[in-house]
Design a protein around this nucleic acid. Structure first.
Length: 354
DNA sequence: AATTTCCCCAACCGCGAAGTT
DNA sequence: TAACTTCGCGGTTGGGGAAAT
C-alpha cells in the first residue's frame, strides 16, 4: 500500500516559506484552484512538494483564515468540543470558522492544556485530577477554608467525582474540627425543595425550582457553619446568586420552569453536569461585573453554532471581558468559573464526526 | 549588554483512509 | 480485488523571538 514519497524528493525546498513563494501559490490557486496538490507545485513553479503547498495554503494563505488571539467564546467552544471529540482537531476546527486545525491544536497544547493542568483538571478527561486529591489535601483545603471559607466552590466542582468514602471521612473529621469561629464570606445557599435557583444552559438564566443540592454538600456546609447564618434566603438576581454544580442524582424530580424549555432551549437535566460554582467576588477577582447580564456572564456560543455541524457556522464574536484579561492567572480565575459544565447531547451532535 | 532559558507556532513527518486504476 | 496514488489528520520538531538571569 503505497505511501508515495513526497518531501524527500531531491531538489525540493523545505522550511519557511518566502513571500515570493507565497505569492506564487496564491496566484496559482486564485487562477486555477487547488486541484491536484501533487502537480500543483510544478505547475505553479514552486520547488516544493504538494503536501507542503497544501499545508501552507490551508494553514496560512487561505483568505478566510482568522488570525489573532482566540476569543473567549472560541476558547470555551474548543474546550467543550474537545471534551466530546478529543484530539479531533479538524472536527473542532470545522466548528470554528476561520481557525485551522493546526492553530487550534497549537493553542490547545500551549495554552488550554497548561491552564487545565494548573487548575488540576485532566486535559484528556476534563475531570479533576483525583490522583492529586488525597485526603490530606482535601482536609488541607477544608482547614484553609475555615479561614477563607469558600471551599464549597471546590466541592461543588468535584463533589460528584470524589470518592464518597473520602468525603464521608473528611466530613466526619470536619465535624470534630468544626469550630464556632467559622464565618463564611459567601452566602452559601443550602437549597431546599422548590426554592428558586438558577440553572443555566450557558445562554439563558431562568429561575427554576429544584430539589436540594447534593446531600454531602449540605452536610458539609452545615457541619462547617455550625454558628453561621448559612442562609436559605434566595434571590432571583445574578448579583448574589451563588451557583452550585449538581448532578442528576442531586436534582431528582425537580419542578422546572416551563419557560426554560421553550424554543431553542434544552432540558438542562440532559446535561452531564449542571453548571456550577459558587460565585463570590473574591474568586472573580473583580474581573467580572456581577451586575452584568447573564449573557455576558456565560456567553458560550449559541446552541445553533454547536448544533449545526455541516451548515454554515456562525462566527464567534469576541468577548471583551475575557479578552481584557491580560494574564494567564486572570484567565485561570475567570475560566475556573466557566469550565465546569458539559454540553448536553442534544446540543452537541457529534455523530457527523464519529 | 551578553548569555541562557523558555515559549510559541509554522512546518514537517508518518500514518491511515479514501480514491483511482 | 489488489496495487497504487492522493489527501488529510494528528503528533512532533526546531527556529526564532521574548523573557529571565
Amino acid at each position: 500500500m503505497g505511501r508515495s514519497p513526497c518531501c524527500e524528493k531531491n531538489g525540493l525546498k523545505k522550511g519557511p516559506w518566502t513571500t515570493e513563494e507565497d505569492q506564487k501559490l496564491v496566484d496559482y490557486i486564485q487562477k486555477h484552484g487547488c486541484g491536484n496538490w501533487r502537480t500543483l507545485p510544478k505547475n505553479a513553479g514552486l520547488q516544493r512538494c504538494g503536501k507542503s503547498c497544501r499545508l501552507r495554503w490551508t494553514n496560512y494563505l487561505r483568505p478566510d483564515i482568522k488570525r489573532g488571539r482566540f476569543s473567549f467564546e472560541e476558547e470555551e467552544a474548543i474546550i467543550q468540543l474537545h471534551s466530546v471529540l478529543g484530539n479531533k482537531w479538524s472536527a473542532i476546527a470545522a466548528r470554528l470558522p476561520g481557525r485551522t486545525d493546526n492553530e487550534i491544536k497549537n493553542f490547545w497544547n500551549t495554552h488550554i492544556r497548561k491552564r487545565l493542568l494548573r487548575m488540576g483538571i485532566d486535559p484528556v478527561t476534563h475531570s479533576p485530577r483525583l490522583d492529586l486529591l488525597d485526603l490530606s489535601s482535601i482536609l488541607g483545603v477544608v482547614s484553609q477554608q475555615q479561614q477563607q471559607p469558600n471551599f464549597s466552590r471546590l466541592l461543588g466542582g468535584v463533589r460528584s467525582l470524589i470518592n464518597p468514602e473520602i468525603l464521608r471521612l473528611a466530613n466526619s473529621i470536619l465535624q470534630s474540627q468544626s469550630t464556632s469561629s467559622y464565618q463564611p464570606d459567601t452566602q452559601i445557599q443550602t437549597q431546599t425543595q422548590n426554592q428558586p435557583f438558577f440553572v443555566t444552559d450557558h445562554q439563558r438564566y431562568q429561575p427554576v425550582a429544584v430539589q436540594p443540592v447534593c446531600s454531602e454538600f449540605q452536610e458539609m456546609t452545615a457541619n462547617c457553619a455550625t454558628t453561621t447564618t448559612a442562609t436559605t434566603a434566595t434571590t432571583t438576581t445574578m448579583e448574589n446568586t451563588p451557583r452550585v454544580m449538581f448532578s442528576d442524582a442531586d436534582v431528582g424530580p425537580a419542578v422546572w420552569d416551563s419557560n426554560y424549555m421553550d424554543g431553542g432551549g434544552y432540558d438542562v437535566r440532559q446535561s452531564d453536569y449542571y453548571y456550577a460554582s459558587v460565585y463570590d467576588d473574591q474568586t472573580a477577582g473583580g474581573l467580572v461585573d456581577p451586575s452584568t447580564t447573564a449573557e455576558s456572564w456565560f456567553s458560550l456560543p449559541p446552541a445553533s453554532v454547536l448544533s449545526t455541524p455541516s451548515s454554515s457556522p456562525t462566527p464567534l464574536n469576541s468577548n471583551s471581558t475575557y479578552n481584557n484579561l491580560s494574564t494567564e492567572d486572570e484567565r485561570d480565575s475567570y475560566c475556573s468559573n466557566v469550565l465546569m459544565f458539559e454540553m448536553p447531547d442534544s446540543i452537541l451532535d457529534v455523530s457527523n464526526f464519529m
